[in-house]
Design a protein around this nucleic acid. Sequence first.
DNA 1: CTTTGGCACTCGGTAGACTCGACTGCCAAA
DNA 2: TTTGGCAGTCGAGTCTACCGAGTGCCAAAG
Lengths: 350, 350
Amino acid sequence: MADSTPKIQPATTGELDERKAAILNAVVAEHIDTAQPVGSNSVAANDAVKVSSATVRSEMVALEREGFLVQPHTSAGRIPTDKGYRFFVDHLGRGVLPQTQHSTLSNFFSHLRGEMEDVLTQTSQMLNEMSNYTSVIIAPSHASATVRSVQVVDLGPRRCVVVAILSDGEAVRRTLELPFEITPEQVNEASTQIASLLFGNTLEQRVEVPSRDTPVATLVREAIASLYRSTPTFEEDRVYIGGSAKVADTFDTVEAVRNVLGLLEKEIVVVNLLEDILQQGLSVAIGSEHGYEPLSTAAVVVAPVTVDGEVAGAVGLLGPTRMNYPEALATAEMVSQQLGQRLGDLIGDR
Amino acid sequence: MADSTPKIQPATTGELDERKAAILNAVVAEHIDTAQPVGSNSVAANDAVKVSSATVRSEMVALEREGFLVQPHTSAGRIPTDKGYRFFVDHLGRGVLPQTQHSTLSNFFSHLRGEMEDVLTQTSQMLNEMSNYTSVIIAPSHASATVRSVQVVDLGPRRCVVVAILSDGEAVRRTLELPFEITPEQVNEASTQIASLLFGNTLEQRVEVPSRDTPVATLVREAIASLYRSTPTFEEDRVYIGGSAKVADTFDTVEAVRNVLGLLEKEIVVVNLLEDILQQGLSVAIGSEHGYEPLSTAAVVVAPVTVDGEVAGAVGLLGPTRMNYPEALATAEMVSQQLGQRLGDLIGDR
DNA sequence: CTTTGGCACTCGGTAGACTCGACTGCCAAA
DNA sequence: TTTGGCAGTCGAGTCTACCGAGTGCCAAAG
């Protein structure tokens, strides 16, 4: 048993002696596989554990005392705690993605075409199908992109739309209600004024706008103000979720499913969650390590997406605490790396 | 019991005599309330039913023979079939939204600001919270919007972005890889050429493009081709879903939850689903009436959103077949009407 | 002919008794 | 220190009995 796809390789042990580590390893691995409490007998059957079940039992008592394992009830096997899982991912097996996955992956990326939105949507779907966990991708922020062009377009009576195009190819669009009619010439005039005012700046760097009171000046002021105004959807559009339906399968209780889905709906929270985890330098957040209540029965695997050496986004997998960490880690890392390359090509040098 | 929010008003009966209708009504109402099979006794207790339980029993046998009810097993009460629900929504009580909801609704809309995306996102969330069902909103299609402006922006070596602004305020953006370097003057030249070629046309009306072989002509051709190319996200962006987490609560089986969530992920399918239902002239699709397998245990309530007298979108609520139809219908209709008005203001005359 | 109360019957669900088996913890011997 | 053995615990499954909700049928009343 426990022959899930990636081979688990023994690694150095930490604060636990080698035997305890081997036992913990065996417990975690089997529990991930079977979702059942693990007893001393099946642990003793593991090749890496070279002692009898009686010894295993006494070691398990110690592991329980130290907080790595819990017993759901007397006369049951044991289940890893969050701390147990943490030790597992820190010290024990790292997965190696089998060749087949590796090649389907590069095959996928070589056939991938289109705008960044499409690339990310498709990647998150693929990632979900590949890992069987819900996938989350955070796209690069537009915060550091600079304005390359601005245009105001007249849409009809007292209504126009202003579009700014950023150096990363993103278009920021705002509609404007004007208190007065305006001529095409004035619209053009405003367009060029705005463009020259904002060109080369990010939308975060606020630019001084002359406050005269002509129609054109008002339009310019209003348009720039609207571009500076951030809309709720702007940050949320960075989130791509693949396979939220999987949540219904991977988590056991309705409660957990509701919580996780509820959180996934709040996309800004998702962005923060992943960024928090990365900021802490983690690649896995287990149980309540990330401090997000609704995810206390979940684990999140994250890999940063680096473009031109800078962290630009993230790839995440979300599952129950007893998710297959070695495999999930390997998959997320692989995908984030490939995706980073791809995004690099897509954005080009700014 | 069965005192859910909207008052249920007796209405004309159809192919069923009045007594059968009253009994069916009672069964459906109580089953919606309790989610349990309904027996002859509780039906007889209903004020609208003026006969004894024995009579109710024999009528229920008839209703079962005619396919309006089923018995999960002998010695259990009865449950409405899809046909039973259908009769209920067609002939029986229509809900009237209580004053409180009505006023929170108009309050909500009067405080609603921002771009269409934001309006729709917030409305779908509000609709979900108000109805406790998963809400779906389909935004107006851009198919009939005409091009008002096109601009090509140089982004760096051999890369540029082309943005078309449509009469409804939408921006269509495509990035382009060029096989050659290009000067700012050429970009401008191309911009104006494309704009004058496409101006006033929709993106569905294909325009003849002169096929010369100069850099500018190539750029023009490529840019127009890219605008005509529809991307996967374009139609999908019309869908706004509020409260997919509710699916976990409203449906009873994991199977159903997975199916529904899986379908909600495929946003194009959601668009088609709602449009199909409206096309059939229905406002409710129960069970398999819509022909979408995964939703065979679900019901969908739809109300068209009309802008300037034309159907421009839809508002939907998705729940189990035993959802509270009177309330859901009333809510969806109310919201769709208000939303239609709001979108009318937002789009203005094109 | 319709409606009704009565009655036998069905069947799901619950509670209790019992068994089985998977564990553990402890202990004495190696 | 490790191990096998053993008693003890407790969940899960099975069996039985029983209760009660609900039906179908029927004969009598309207």
